[in-house]
């Protein structure tokens, strides 16, 4: 799985997103303390760490759900003290959640169609008619969504309400919904948690395909160390909200602090 990856690794250059000295607390609880790292265009960047290390909080800072008390976020050359969800979405940051956050009452197709919202522009008047330009727009986006459905091999559940789907498929639909935004930066929060071996392999393949063929930059939180080592170009390790290591999978794996804090304990 890691064969062609190494060759791509060298060609990545400019920084897409940089987090600089970010600290985040909830009342007394410090979730993140002075963490800095960057994500380069075209790479797969893993964020790992034990439970409660602040990984999910970090993604929430990046797409604007949490506002850090300190630090700056630079995305596409623009520096801000905090993001807003709408800004993040409209500038190409998409995201999946650790505990699936699908629109449960809607079908697979509609869920993914929601991902196209920002790219659909026909207003209330045309929507009322569902005719002419509105219908053409609907069909154009439907076509795009169908490509995603093909890619993820979920044709059979197109019209099924997502609440009825098994967990593994829900994760897949959620990925599809994020992809519908045609993101430049895709944040995946434990996309393989709770999956069986086969589902995990599929998911790995999708992630690699996305990265290779569409050049999507991916930030990935994952507990399965094997997967992380195979997929990612660089890894950042968090523990109790602090960054304790940052580098290629080989470097991180050899780092004594990481072995102590994470590999030694968890596995």
């Amino acid at each position: 799985m890691s064969g062609p990856k190494d060759a791509v690794g060298e060609t990545m250059g400019e920084t897409l997103l940089a987090v600089d000295g970010v600290s985040l607390g909830f009342g007394g609880v410090k979730a993140i303390t002075d963490v800095s790292f960057d994500i380069r265009k075209g790479e797969i960047r893993a964020i790992i760490g034990p439970n409660g290390a602040g990984k999910t909080s970090m993604l929430n800072v990046i797409n604007g759900f949490y506002h850090p008390q300190q630090g700056r976020i630079t995305y596409k050359g623009q520096t801000r003290s905090r993001m807003r969800p709408y800004q993040a979405a409209s500038q190409g940051i998409a995201r999946t959640f650790q505990n699936v956050a699908l629109f449960r009452g809607m079908s697979t197709l509609d869920n993914i169609m929601v991902g196209r919202t920002l790219r659909m522009h026909r207003g209330l008047f045309w929507q009322m008619l569902r005719f002419g330009p509105a219908m053409r727009e609907e069909i154009d986006h439907r076509r795009h969504v169908e490509d995603i459905i093909d890619f993820l091999q979920i044709e059979a559940i197109r019209k099924t309400p997502v609440g009825k789907l098994p967990y593994g498929l829900q994760k897949r639909v959620e990925l599809g919904r994020a992809l519908a935004m045609e993101p430049e930066l895709l944040l995946l929060d434990e996309p393989m948690a709770g999956m069986n071996m086969e589902e995990k392999e599929d998911m790995c393949r999708y992630i690699l395909d996305l990265n290779r063929h569409f050049g999507t930059t991916i930030a990935l939180i994952e507990h399965d160390i094997g997967v992380v080592m195979d997929l990612s170009d660089r890894v950042v390790v968090l523990e109790y909200g602090h960054k304790i290591a940052d580098g290629t999978p080989e470097e991180v794996k050899a780092d004594p602090k990481v072995i102590d804090a994470y590999l030694g304990v968890g596995h």
Binding site: P85, M106, G115, R122
Partner: peptide
């Protein structure tokens, strides 16, 4: 689109915000 927007807000407003 508008109907889907409403249902997205109904079902999971956090994820809806994330879709812009």
């Amino acid at each position: 689109r508008i109907g889907r927007t409403w249902m997205a807000v109904r079902d999971m407003d956090i994820a809806a915000q994330l879709m812009g």
